[in-house]
Amino acid sequence: MSDISSEALAAGRGEQNGKVQTSHHPKTDPKQDEKKGYYGIPPIKRAHWTWQIPVYFWLGGITAGVALFTAVSKLVGKEDPAVTRLGRYFAVVSMILSPVLLIWDLGRPERFLNMMRIWKLRSPMSNQSWSLVAYGNVSGILMLKQAAEDGLLGRGGIARLVARLVPHRVLQVLALPLALFIGSNTGTLLSATSVPIWARNWMLMGPTFLASGVSTGLSFISLVLNLLRTGRKDTHHTLQRAEKVMLLVESGLIAASLARMSRWGKPLVTGKIGALFVGGTLIGGIAAPLALLSGKETRNKSMLTSVLVLLGGLAFRFAVVLAGRKSADDPQAYFSFTRGENAPQPGDKI
């Protein structure tokens, strides 16, 4: 075969640069080797969670913060009756709302009690259910005492009996670790999945969610006390001081988390989720409140700060949950995560 005819043949076949380009031989994608996968179909399935779950995470965080401040004020002997009252009533409200949100999210809500069939220490979801039951019961008893003291149970013998018999000191101490566990476990629950952005940051998910939760809890107490125009002056001052430090701790933990997530943390800082996270949490929920807290303390400023911190915490939870969805849908993120030594391994120390 002569050169000319072979060239003509090549042209007839649509050959360019030695590559066949017909309908049966689609163009070679130069990135073929980097873009491994199967038609871009996600190799793992994302969680179905809708808005109830991030809202619950937010509520659980506030609960932890409120319980922490209430218990510590008692432990250091600077108890403010207004804070104690708020803390005891709010714990019960939260422990009613949280299960409602969680049961709402179930595929078979009528079977919610199946969560109580077993207790599995390795399942954060199981631990979460049991800690809600435990904390719900403890806070229920504590609320009874508060209700008796406030005269909501009447002036009869039962009210006096409840007020006297409830071992509130023991229960308050018992309640604190439970509430702190609920607050941190919201983060751990996300990290114990195959989703790269969550699993990568397994060590700091719990602490970050807890720090954010405590900051929102402090803001919640501050906001309610301001709205009701109650609480001692030194309580307000303490709340502001604690909030300032807590926001700094939170921003430190978020920075460390982003560093740890490295390339798999991209969904959290890009696109619409990035706007929510950077604008809502970093700027609106941390930087702006810190700026507001640095000046003179006024009621209006304090209330604005509290609202910003609370909204920032909510934005944080939505951003993290939505980023997980995006991370699970990205085949390249999962494949690169499971290729080398990036994923958590049983032998890992840190």
Partner: peptide, 22 residues
Amino acid sequence: PRHPFMPQVKVKGAFVASSIAA
């Protein structure tokens, strides 16, 4: 995935980290 992992291997570690943070 080439090297999939058990997502729950670090639940205990996460609990320890969270307790220290708490």
